[in-house]
Design a protein around this nucleic acid. Structure first.
Lengths: 143, 143
DNA sequence: CCAATGTAGCTCAGCGCTAAGCTATCCCGG
DNA sequence: CCGGGATAGCTTAGCGCTGAGCTACATTGG
């Protein structure tokens, strides 16, 4: 089983490299994750903590703390939901949106660089294999 | 770039599943990693903290703390190196070896289960792609 | 031979996450 | 209409890791 060990090592290398990119924009990985998830969501780019939690695959406490930090920096806003008294709506501030819009191109360039060794067909095959595995493990959000 | 995102999600799912297996033997992932690395090394299964550090891709401080915990439980031993005054030699105790020998088959079964969705050729292709990526990123220990 | 540089391992403060538990709200079936 | 289970979000203690810094030992070049 030389697959899962390599998966873990590769993820480790990749995330270390990505951290460097995030840091160049004053971000860390958890913050980038939240901002990018909001940015990728349909306009008007509003999500609940529960949605962010499912996307990030972390516990609710982790999302609470991520949002605390981002809100403290003025990058996201929290407002009570109008339709569900338990829920909260998270949105990007102008500053948060400007920041993630600066960081995203760099992030994509890093991805491209990390995958540079693979040809297009190889990438497609790899993406397909990963997708298949994710689905077999019941990952609902296997995008 | 649907690859790196899936890689991260997959690694998350896999490691959560593996944790469950480790816990069934009274282990967590870091402890399992150290014991399994020692067990897989050539007899007499002795490694230095520096070697464990490179294998696990964590900092030296992390290895120190992992070894503190394992030594405290009586699963590994630390002895000063005879050939290098800076170095330490880590070995498995009888108990440590017995424990990892019980846990490893379960771990392999978990791997097999997680990869159940892939056929043999699919696995080979995936393993090859991951290996290629690791090498392109300069991972010396891409086994 | 020794000064300079590199390597090995340890220490510790700080950080983000989990796990468990809490309150408040929603929603379904009886 | 209401009781009970599910869901949303927050809190907090505890944990493992990083990053920076330290000491001791090894190695290399002049």
């Amino acid at each position: 089983m030389a697959i899962l060990g390599r998966l873990s090592r590769l993820q480790q290398l990749v995330s270390t490299e990505q951290k460097r990119t995030f840091a160049a924009h004053g971000l860390d990985a958890p913050s980038f994750d939240v901002l990018a998830t909001l940015r990728r969501s349909d306009p008007p780019h509003l999500l609940t903590p529960a949605e962010l939690m499912r996307s990030a695959m972390v516990t609710s406490g982790a999302i609470t703390q991520r949002l605390d930090r981002l809100e403290g920096r003025g990058l996201v806003t929290r407002a009570p939901s109008e339709s569900d008294g338990r829920s909260v709506v998270v949105g990007l501030t102008d500053e948060g949106r400007a920041l993630i819009d600066r960081a995203l191109p760099d992030h994509l360039a890093t991805e491209e660089r990390l995958l540079g060794a693979l040809t297009r067909p190889e990438r497609d095959a790899l993406a397909g294999a990963l997708r298949g595995l994710l689905e077999s493990l019941g990952d609902a959000e296997a995008r």
